[in-house]
Design a protein around this nucleic acid. Structure first.
Lengths: 258, 258
DNA sequence: CCATCTTTGTGCACGCGTTCACAAAGACAT
DNA sequence: ATGTCTTTGTGAACGCGTGCACAAAGATGG
């Protein structure tokens, strides 16, 4: 299992930087809102504020796409919407399959943001026979045995995994074998995929843990002026790693199960 | 500051790099799995493989926490689980409130990963009166008017927003005013918060759009050796931005509504 | 046509994060 | 104790992303 290469070499010289690509949807959303209000043009300063980024960063981002602005005026909203949409590949229709129609999967299927921007849910797939046929988001759930057929018949290249962690890798393998080359993973697991397959990962509990870290730091700082030592616990488990290797001693607080 | 002979981690300063913090939950998950299988020690190479990262990166990440490994052996699993948990602030209990109990909010409330690692859902809040009192994930939904009281009584410092986009900023303002200093936002909006408040954002459609970009590039590359021009459309809207500013002309494909 | 004003596009410097490569440190065998 | 072997911890180089600051470009007005 020497796979596991989830990140790409990113040696695209004339490519658009990853960080820029990640912001393009942000700009697109802000521009769409302006478009709906029939705003004809927008300056980098205004658009940057709406997207929550620095204006210099925004201009540099757009410079990778080309010179689409007019100096002294700004950017044409409609034109920019089209250019970014095209760059992101949203001018075409992307059929996607969603595997794992539990609580989260059903919520995602119902989530409007999925279907609204060029993405079309081609099928909902689950491994639970009692789910099969039940309508979710106006669409009958299909059995996982049909996964390969569904992917092939619909030309699906993007899959969404919302299964439990234990099933995710297996589902991933089947999706990849069937021809899917991009995966959005909601299961709390690291997926191994061959080269050429992109995986993006959304993990709810990880985000919370990152917030908790910052929250703890804030709380620790306002306690006093201590700048070096952590605020609280520093006594228990303050042993050297070597001697801490004994066997079944459960003095650690059970922080989590899975 | 580069003293060669400080046996203590003096340069621990106080700042763990953001990128490292974002990976700590990943390591923690892998370590927890090892712990459940009663694996006593693990090498950086093995753990890195399980977490899907480079082993050098993992060692450098751990070096920010201190010298918790044993050369020639590896890391003590239980000890490392405890150290990372403490660093992330997971040894304490974090009460959180979730606002917006629609499809997504209900799914999140039911999602085990939330409650499992030191986080406790203190309250579910919604603005829809018909939702109030209904049990979701074994907990009655409360009305949004009680938001401030709930936050204060439970000492909540972390809030999760799963409302529609239109309501997110308003809810955010109320949470912040009530004392919440960390927000996890699932609504597709840019939130404005005062300094000192952390916001993390999970946007499902943005992730899909990023995947679509890479997917399009893959498709374009395998078409042929064209290296400069984009694969397809290059005729329509190939006008200068200046003259494209006319009024109500809908020749752009309607890519999305909201 | 010229002057002025606005806003873009970008060269440049800087800081962060990643990766390599290796010395130091400890385990283990003899 | 000594040597060998394994694995950590980290110095250093490198590349990417960010933000500043400004010249170029075009609009606008006289």
């Amino acid at each position: 299992m020497a796979t596991g290469r989830t990140h790409r070499p990113a040696t695209r010289s004339r490519g658009i930087p990853e960080a820029t690509v990640a912001r393009l949807p942000l700009y697109l959303r802000a521009l769409t809102a302006l478009s709906e209000r029939s705003v004809p043009t927008v300056s980098s300063e205004e658009l940057a504020a709406a997207a929550g980024v620095n204006s210099a960063k925004l201009r540099k981002d757009f410079s990778y796409l080309g010179s689409y602005g007019t100096r002294g005026v700004g950017y044409d909203v409609e034109y920019l919407v089209y250019q970014i949409s095209r760059e992101l590949g949203l001018t075409q229709d992307w059929p996607i399959v969603m595997v794992g129609i539990g609580n989260l999967g059903a919520a995602l299927a119902n989530y409007g943001g999925f279907a609204s921007r060029g993405f079309r849910v081609a099928a909902l797939i689950d491994a639970d026979p009692s789910m099969v046929g039940k309508p979710v988001a106006g669409m009958p759930v299909q059995f996982i045995d049909d996964l390969e057929r569904i992917v092939a018949e619909n030309g699906v290249s993007i899959g969404v995994i919302a299964t439990p962690a234990g099933a995710a890798q297996q589902v991933c393998d089947r999706l990849v074998a069937a021809g899917v080359t991009s995966i959005l993973n909601f299961a709390p697991t690291v997926l191994s995929v061959p080269d050429g397959v992109d995986v993006r990962k959304v993990d709810l509990s990880i985000e919370l843990q990152i917030l908790a870290f910052h929250e703890q730091r804030k709380a620790g700082e306002e306690t006093g002026g201590e700048a070096i030592l952590p605020p609280v616990v520093r006594d228990a488990a303050a042993v050297t790693p070597a001697e801490g290797r004994k066997g079944p001693d459960g003095d650690m607080p059970a922080v989590m199960p899975a």
